[in-house]
């Protein structure tokens, strides 16, 4: 589904990603771990096409398409979704209007007609239940005045609405208490189908207790330095990253 080859990317002339290789198949869950500043968030930003980052080398194909050729909105329409680490607030724009624009743009891209108001509200109600999101939140402005936990839940709600093929969860567990973590993780699991894949970026094993990864990668200094099964996450939880750095001869 996603094929990343020798990806290099920089911001303001500083190279952050130094040759990423990553291959994700349909239905797989990949976890990406790594110390602070290793390039995890940069990788997710580059994949969704954030304009601050410049891809200097390498290729990314998504479902057979050259992803780097597409605009950020077309990447979204093609089925790529990012759950932001820090979701932004958009005052004055209600969640209902925002989601309606997003869903209908996607339908337009797929050559379908726009949903009617009642169809749309029915869909909202259905999907809200996935993450136990309050009706009041849906009527407020996008993320405005939401608590940290509500923002993350709102991200997963949007994921439910847009039904992406590949979701990237960028530290979706940060700032969540144990109950919110469970709700968010269960939401992600409910949305999981054999047709969809997931990249989970996290510092902690905690989230991976709920969302079981098939593969765990360690990203360090802009490169993937270790790839193994779920047992790698447990080992990192116990021993930290130092032993991996030692293996690399540092």
């Amino acid at each position: 589904m996603l094929e990343v080859k020798d990806l290099h990317a920089s911001i303001n002339g500083k190279e952050i990603l130094k040759g990423i290789n990553l291959s994700i198949k349909k239905g797989e869950v990949h976890a990406i771990m790594g110390p602070n500043g290793s390039g995890k968030s940069t990788l997710s930003s580059v994949l969704v096409g954030h304009p601050s980052f410049e891809v200097t080398k390498g290729s990314v194909t998504f479902d057979g398409q050259d992803l780097l050729e597409l605009s950020p909105e077309d990447r979204s329409h093609a089925g790529l979704f990012l759950s932001f680490q820090y979701p932004v607030e958009i005052p004055g724009v209600s969640m209902v209007n925002f989601m309606r624009a997003a869903v209908n743009e996607k339908r337009k891209y797929e050559g379908k007609s726009a949903l009617t108001a009642s169809e749309f509200l029915k869909l909202m109600r259905e999907k809200r239940a996935v993450v136990e999101l309050d009706n009041k939140l849906a009527n407020r402005s996008v993320n405005e005045g939401f608590s940290g936990g509500e923002k993350k839940r709102n991200e997963i709600f949007q994921m439910a609405m847009l039904e992406p093929k590949l979701s990237i969860l960028d530290e979706t567990d940060s700032g969540l208490d144990i109950d919110a973590l469970r709700i968010v993780a269960e939401g992600v699991n409910k949305l999981k189908t054999p047709e969809t894949s997931c990249i989970v970026i996290t510092h902690y094993q905690r989230l991976l207790d709920y969302i079981k990864p098939d593969v765990v990668h360690v990203l360090y200094k802009g490169r993937i330095v270790k790839t193994a099964g779920p047992e790698l996450a447990l080992e990192i939880e116990k021993r930290g990253f130092d032993w991996i750095k030692k293996e690399l001869g540092e």
């Binding site: 969704v48 996607k106 949007q158």
Partner: peptide, 16 residues
């Protein structure tokens, strides 16, 4: 820029 990019990621063009 961050607000606009957030909208872009959800499939909404900058103009919209």
């Amino acid at each position: 820029e961050d607000q606009l990019f957030y909208c872009n990621q959800r499939g909404i063009s900058t103009e919209d």
